[in-house]
């Protein structure tokens, strides 16, 4: 079936099978930053923004995303211009194996977009769906809080 959606700001039309999940469709189209870690919504490695909200793309059928706006980690920044959160994760050594990182960054972006100066508890809550065996969360939390601290109370970038 034909699926039309807005992906990282651009209109796309994809052929997808009815059973195809958004994770698979994204990866099939070369968007490899969206990872498969559990395929049951429990690891956060496949998180993307759907109309600005963080969702597990492994539990969203591609067909369900039709007519909506999807943002993946690739839509946030690139080598020339990484998103402030991407930069902060790098600067705070918050990345070890890196497999959970795109999901965490997506989650943090969803939070900061609605709550530019979140409490530490809110940051921990936003990362709680992102089990990470490498970092122990200390430095990812610091990275998100550091970006929050630069948000002068206005809109998040």
């Amino acid at each position: 079936m034909k699926i039309e959606l807005k992906l990282n700001g651009k209109d796309v039309a994809w052929d997808c099978a009815p059973h195809e999940f958004l994770t698979e469709a994204l990866r099939r189209h070369g968007l490899l930053g969206t990872k498969r870690g559990c395929e049951s919504g429990d690891c956060g490695a496949c998180s993307v923004l759907l109309d600005g909200e963080e969702v597990p793309s492994c539990l969203v059928l591609a067909a369900q995303a039709a007519g909506h706006e999807v943002t993946t980690i690739e839509g946030l920044g690139d080598f020339a211009g990484p998103h402030p959160l991407q930069k902060a994760f790098v600067d705070h050594t918050a990345i070890q194996c890196g497999f959970c990182t795109p999901g965490m960054v997506i989650a943090a972006k969803a939070l900061l977009d609605v709550e530019p100066r979140p409490s530490e508890h809110a940051v921990r809550e936003c990362l709680a769906g992102h089990p990470c065996r490498c970092t122990g969360y200390v430095k990812p939390i610091q990275a998100v809080l550091a970006v929050a601290a630069t948000n002068a109370g206005g809109e998040a970038r």
Binding site: G41, G44, E53, E54, V55, P56, L59, A110
Partner: peptide, 9 residues
């Protein structure tokens, strides 16, 4: 319930 991403769904 679960985590933020799942609460959103």
């Amino acid at each position: 319930y679960a985590v933020v991403a799942l609460q959103n769904r």
